[in-house]
């Protein structure tokens, strides 16, 4: 296993930057999640690492080896990087077993088949080895694709939205199983997702992207607790934003004050995660909507004409008046 490093990588499509000066490192044996909305450039990063595209500038290293510079790119097939595609891209004319064995062609035939079977077994799919892709369920296809990518012992493995096509229950199950396998095999992993929960649950390290720019690279904890920007904060879950002025070390919002280190009089965005908005009986705000949201309720509050969202543990009634406390760990101020 090897780390994967991008240094000042740029990549343009049709004159627009798909990636603009991105530098990041996926640590050896760890899971790096690339999080961002579509068009943020996260899939481009995977394709650049795999060598399916070349950077316009900057360089890419796998371990200590430079695999891409603008002038020279090592061909994909020599990079030893495994990839699981969004649509899995299983070979339709090959059985599950033969798909997994495809990357093991350097081995003798018997070894190859044995290894392929071992990988399928590891995924709980030994009994499906003879099945063709179109005979497999979506979850089974995903697992075959993962086994296929891992079987040749790649230096790193790249997962492109690996859980996006699956139903929520299967999704969580598969995500955990996949992570277990990756942890067990100490595989350097980069995975692309637009789902904050997937990223927070699965990753050792997080890279948040938007419009081709890297907003923040940090552990999930750091990213959650200390977002580098408003956009980075918004990437990890529902957030309330209020545009105000920093005065006397605070920004005043209709729902309360938030500590600010900005100079007096400067314009500021106050951002508060929905789960940092705590409710207690009172009169400052009015509940205008309540929706069940897992163990919590997603509550909409109105105060002075502004509506915020809160994730509240206790049952709250529509029309009820409440007071609001903003939890400091989920409240941030950014310069506007």
């Amino acid at each position: 296993m090897s780390s994967v490093t991008l240094r000042n990588v740029r990549r343009a499509y049709n004159g627009a930057w798909a990636l603009d000066d991105v530098s990041l490192t996926a640590p050896e044996g760890k899971v790096l999640a690339l999080l961002g909305p579509s068009g943020s450039g996260k899939s481009t990063i995977l394709r650049l690492i795999a060598g399916l595209e070349s950077p316009d500038s900057g360089e890419i290293l796998i371990g200590n080896e430079t695999v891409s510079t603008p002038g020279r790119a090592m061909p994909t097939e020599q990079r030893r990087v495994g990839m699981v595609f969004q649509d899995y891209s299983l070979f339709p004319h090959l059985t599950a077993g033969a798909n997994v064995a495809f990357g093991l062609d350097k081995l003798a035939r018997a070894d190859r088949d044995e290894q392929a079977l071992r990988w399928l077994d590891r995924m709980g799919l030994k009994h499906r080895a003879g099945a063709y892709p179109h005979e497999l369920s979506g979850g089974e296809q995903q697992r075959v694709a993962l086994a296929r990518a891992l079987a040749p012992k790649p230096r790193a493995v790249l997962l492109d939205e690996p859980f996006s096509g699956l139903d929520p229950v299967l999704r969580a199950e598969l995500r955990d199983a996949t992570l277990a396998t990756l942890a067990e095999t100490q595989t350097t992993t980069l995975f692309v997702t637009h789902d904050a929960e997937d990223a927070l649950q699965a990753a050792d390290q997080l890279a948040i992207l938007k419009a081709g720019k890297l907003l923040q690279s940090a552990t999930p904890r750091e990213a959650y607790d200390a977002p580098a920007s408003l956009d980075a904060a918004a990437a990890l879950g529902p957030i309330n934003v209020f545009e105000g002025v920093s005065e006397g070390g605070v920004v005043r919002t209709p729902f309360g004050e938030i500590a600010s280190s900005l100079p007096n009089g400067s314009r500021a965005y106050a951002a508060v995660r929905a789960e940092a908005v705590h409710l207690k009986p009172g009169s400052a705000a009015r509940v205008v909507d309540v929706r069940p949201h897992g163990a919590h309720d997603l509550v909409r509050l109105e105060a002075q004409g502004v509506v915020w969202r809160a994730l509240a543990p206790a049952r709250t009634a529509l029309g009820e008046r409440v007071d609001v406390a903003l939890h400091a760990a989920g409240s941030f101020v950014f310069s506007a």
Binding site: T76, Q78, R80, D87, S89, D105
Partner: peptide, 26 residues
């Protein structure tokens, strides 16, 4: 699909192997 070609490449298949093992059969 482009994905199949890319898959084969990430699995270490060179141009000839891709032609023989993937493109032609499909």
């Amino acid at each position: 699909s482009k994905g199949l070609d890319a898959s084969a490449r990430t699995l270490g298949a060179g141009p000839w192997r891709r032609l023989i093992a993937v493109d032609l059969p499909i």
